[in-house]
């Protein structure tokens, strides 16, 4: 009975996601498409929770739906009135591409069902479970991210830094929003401390429960985006030296830890199991600061006035 109820829930979720995705891809107005994409992301976050992936559900809601949606909505402001967002390929091309994509989907589905049918117990998952006590944390996802596969996460922080530098070098930020009306400003004043508190909690709890540097960084970035959207003058970005230090802190501390383990044990990023918990927290602390800084700065769509020390304020 319980399994049957769950299946109905699954079917509703699947249909909802399909409809929202088609809406996001083909809605007549681009603004509607972006809003449907944000809703789609929130339903996907529910699907992650359903598939027992709460870490990803948190990240999807905060980053994949929240920040990506804010980015896309902000980008709509830049569009010139003449831009036609409804232009599509001619029908015959659309049908031809549809045929090819359908063939690909059928092929992939067949391959997926083959793999799914012959799937045994995952050997890698068993290794993670067997060595979890040496990792310094008890949340297996955090253990994989910051200990067993720390290399991937270091490279990911580097990718984030590279994207940040790309955005910063492309020009100045968008013109700031006008100040929020009193109701919204009051709400923002309430939300920002709550977001900072929740970010700190997620960072700490990531060691043994869903959470961690990415979710915490995303929440802090969301707080900064809210402050920016509200146009509150008392929230100012730090000066250019501190801003740049914040942006590279995650990569720098992570690399330093990696190099010290290389000198100590001869293996890059091989955390000694006695210290692993503390080292992971240290890395995550600085990674959170860098992730929040990077996500907020890329949201601005260009560098803020304080990014360069010599630059004259563009709005002045």
């Amino acid at each position: 009975m319980k399994a049957g109820a769950l299946l109905y829930l699954d079917l509703i979720m699947v249909i909802l996601m399909l409809v929202l995705a088609i809406g996001a891809l083909h809605a007549r107005s681009l603004r509607h498409a972006v809003i449907l994409f944000i809703v789609f992301g929130l339903v996907v976050a529910l699907a992650w929770a359903r598939l027992r992936a709460p870490d990803i559900a948190l990240a999807e809601a905060a980053i994949g739906s929240g920040l990506a949606g804010a980015l896309l909505l902000a980008a709509l402001r830049d569009r010139r009135p003449g831009d036609d967002a409804t232009r599509r390929a001619p029908v015959w091309q659309s049908v031809a591409v549809g045929g090819l994509v359908t063939a690909l989907v059928v092929l992939l589905a067949w391959a997926f069902l083959e793999v799914q049918g012959g799937r045994a117990n995952e050997p890698l998952a068993n290794i993670v479970q067997a060595t979890l006590h040496e990792s310094g944390v008890s949340n297996p996802v955090t253990a994989v991210l910051l200990n067993f596969r720390a290399y991937d996460t270091l490279l990911e922080l580097t990718v984030l830094l590279a994207a940040l530098l790309g955005v910063m070098s492309l020009g100045p930020q968008r013109s700031p929003m006008r100040a929020a009306e009193p109701m919204a400003a009051g709400l923002i004043g309430w939300l920002i401390p709550l977001l900072i508190l929740a970010g700190g909690y997620l960072l700490w709890v990531g060691a043994h429960a869903p959470g961690g540097a990415f979710q915490a960084g995303a929440l802090l970035a969301a707080a900064a985006v809210l402050a920016h959207l509200g146009g509150r003058r008392e929230f100012q970005l730090p000066g250019h030296t501190r801003l740049r230090l914040l942006a590279v802190a995650g990569c720098a501390v992570f690399t330093l830890v990696g190099v010290s383990t290389l000198l100590g044990s001869g293996v890059l990023l091989q955390l000694p199991s006695d210290w692993a918990g503390g080292l992971i927290l240290l890395i995550e602390l600085f990674a959170t600061a860098s992730i929040a800084t990077a996500l907020f700065l890329v949201y601005l769509g260009g560098h803020p006035p304080s990014w360069n020390s010599r630059e004259v304020h563009p709005d002045a």
Binding site: L71, L145, A163, F214
Partner: peptide, 26 residues
């Protein structure tokens, strides 16, 4: 318990996807 390795991969993927989207928009 689910396999945590794809979970870590997807977590990485979400952050990289939003960074790439931001760079593309800029």
């Amino acid at each position: 318990d689910p396999d945590p390795i794809p979970h870590a991969l997807v977590l990485t993927g979400i952050v990289v996807a939003v960074a790439a989207t931001a760079l593309a928009l800029a």
